[in-house]
């Protein structure tokens, strides 16, 4: 996976804050670029893909950050 242009750290934020921060950060990347959110909240695993579907963005996948926390990668398409 190519390195995301922007990574936001939501490790310690409860649901739905990781999704709120993801929405806020979207304008900071160019269309076509990747944006990652690191979140330990178990809802993020379901809600990042759901957010992408509802907001017309592309869900790229899940990987692990260096400390093992889940990192969810999104591509801005609009």
């Amino acid at each position: 996976m190519t390195a995301p242009a922007v990574e936001i750290d939501c490790r310690d934020l409860p649901c739905p804050r990781p999704i709120i921060e993801l929405a806020r950060a979207l304008p900071s990347v160019e269309v076509g670029d990747l944006l990652a959110v690191v979140a330990r909240d178990p809802a993020a695993r379901h809600d990042v893909p759901a957010w992408c579907r509802m907001r017309g963005q592309e869900y790229v996948g899940e990987e692990a950050a260096e400390d093992g926390a889940p990192r969810y990668v999104v591509r801005r398409v609009s």
């Binding site: 649901c15 999704i19 178990p42 809802a43 695993r45 809600d47 893909p49």
Partner: peptide, 22 residues
């Protein structure tokens, strides 16, 4: 939603459907 559950896990129903859980 997870924040309303004692387990702090989101609903397995919503998750299985691919629906937004929060």
């Amino acid at each position: 939603s997870a924040c309303t559950a004692s387990t702090l896990e989101p609903s397995h129903v919503l998750a299985a459907m691919g629906a937004l859980t929060h």
